[in-house]
Design a protein around this nucleic acid. Structure first.
Lengths: 153, 153
DNA sequence: CTCCTTGCAAATTGTTTGCATACCT
DNA sequence: AGGTATGCAAACAATTTGCAAGGAG
């Protein structure tokens, strides 16, 4: 039923804009939903959608991700590994808490997720101070993970 | 004299690793320093260095930026416009406060810098909780700027 | 029936690499 | 001298775009 909710949301927003509900669009959203918590590249999503719908083209996946992002149905994040990643996090904020923060080790390039929910006050402050309406955020810390720190010693 | 400091730092770190002090490396660092506060792409830097040293190649700029980043002499940031940006911020933390945070408008793509210095406690907490040694961070807020909010109304 | 959307392939763009030459130390 | 760096051009990889054919409303 969680599934239903976002699917209906997508359908509604498409209709609203005079756009069409297609298998491809539904499947991309569905794959993202079934993998909530993962940070998926367009290629990842393409691979998974292809299993059930081999005719789909990679370009369509890119176009759909852009669309879903424009409609604020998915979040984008960039871990500096050369490709943009997507997740459905933001939408599900209500129930399952997602990890929007990452510790990135400069030595081994490991990405360690880190709990969220520390920036709510800051977001409120920004809205009051600047009039900027915050929808989402992305926070990365660069440094050295414990293991690499010990190697250096 | 601020100039001198980072230049000497670079020379020392190069020597330390058995690498060489070249005009190109000094000039890339110098351009970054003279433009502290700007978020510069490799191409931006290439353009500026070329004015004084037209023989330089773009590939050298890329290689040098990677090197400076490895040595923690420059910071990297990604504003999701398709290219990586560099600035010297971190090094100068002592005197001139830099804006490490950005509000990115999803509608008009404007990037609004936002003051720093809000995450020091959080960094300390991370170090204690995870053993991850934080060197730098990057924080982006996505949303709608005041102007775009008003347009929507 | 009319646009919107798709798949394919070609085009783009930021970045990296191979290699012969040039330059620090 | 000896290995490191450089410039150039070619190679790459992620993403975008043009276009004819297909599909939703």
């Amino acid at each position: 039923m969680e599934q239903k909710k976002t699917e209906e949301l997508l359908k509604a927003r498409l209709k609203e804009k005079g756009l069409k509900v297609t298998h491809q669009r539904l499947m991309v959203l569905s794959v993202l939903e079934q993998n909530s918590g993962r940070h998926m590249t367009a290629e990842d999503i393409y691979g998974l959608v292809s299993e059930e719908y081999p005719e789909i083209g990679l370009a369509t996946v890119y176009r759909t991700l852009q669309l879903l992002w424009d409609m604020q149905l998915v979040d984008r994040l960039n871990l500096d590994d050369g490709c943009v990643r997507y997740e459905i996090g933001h939408l599900l904020k209500g129930d399952a808490k997602h990890n929007h923060h990452h510790l990135i080790c400069r030595e081994c390039n490991r990405v360690i997720p880190f709990g969220d929910d520390l920036l709510d006050d800051l977001e409120r402050h920004i809205e009051e101070a600047t009039g900027f309406h915050v929808l989402d955020h992305e926070l990365k810390f660069f440094g050295l993970c414990r293991e690499c720190m010990e190697k250096v010693k």
